[in-house]
Amino acid sequence: MTGVSIFAAVLSYLIGSVSFSYVITRWVRGYDIREHGSGNAGATNMLRVVGKGPAAAVFILDALKGIAAIGLGSLLSEGQTLMMVCGIAAVIGHNWPIFLGFRGGKGIATTIGVTATLTLAAALIAGAAAILAIILTRYVSLGSLIFAAGLPVMIAVLDYPTSYIYLSLVITLLAFVRHATNIRRLFAGTESKLGSSKPRS
Rank of each mutant, 00 (worst) to 15 (best):
A129Y: 03
I108Q: 00
P54L: 09
M83S: 09
L11N: 08
A129G: 12
P97A: 04
M83A: 13
S17Q: 08
I146H: 02
G37F: 13
I112L: 13
A126F: 05
D32Q: 08
A116I: 15
I92Y: 08
I67E: 08
F20E: 02
A123K: 07
S38H: 05
S17H: 08
A43V: 06
P97I: 04
Y22M: 05
I131K: 08
I24W: 06
A90M: 07
S38Q: 07
N40W: 09
D62G: 06
I131R: 15
A122Q: 04
E35P: 01
G113A: 12
L82M: 09
G37C: 07
V91Y: 14
T81Q: 09
T117P: 08
M84C: 01
L118D: 03
Y31M: 12
A90I: 01
G51K: 08
I108G: 00
L64M: 14
A89P: 09
S21C: 06
I108S: 06
A123F: 14
A130D: 03
E35R: 06
I112D: 01
I112R: 02
R48H: 12
N95K: 07
I98M: 02
A43N: 01
L47A: 08
I134D: 11
I98E: 06
A8T: 13
L142K: 11
L100A: 13
L145P: 01
L132K: 11
G127D: 09
V50M: 09
A68R: 01
A69D: 13
A43I: 03
N45K: 09
A9G: 14
I33E: 04
Y22E: 03
D32P: 08
W96L: 00
A8I: 03
A130E: 09
T117S: 13
G66M: 05
T81W: 15
M84F: 14
G39H: 02
I24M: 10
R103A: 05
L64D: 01
F7Q: 10
G87K: 05
Y139I: 06
L11C: 04
R34G: 11
T110G: 00
A63M: 09
L61S: 07
G105R: 04
I88N: 10
L100F: 11
M83T: 12
L136R: 12
Y13E: 01
L145D: 05
T111F: 06
I88V: 14
S19G: 03
A89M: 13
V91R: 04
F147I: 04
L120F: 15
G143P: 05
G51E: 12
W27D: 02
T25V: 11
S144H: 01
A57Q: 02
R103G: 07
T44K: 10
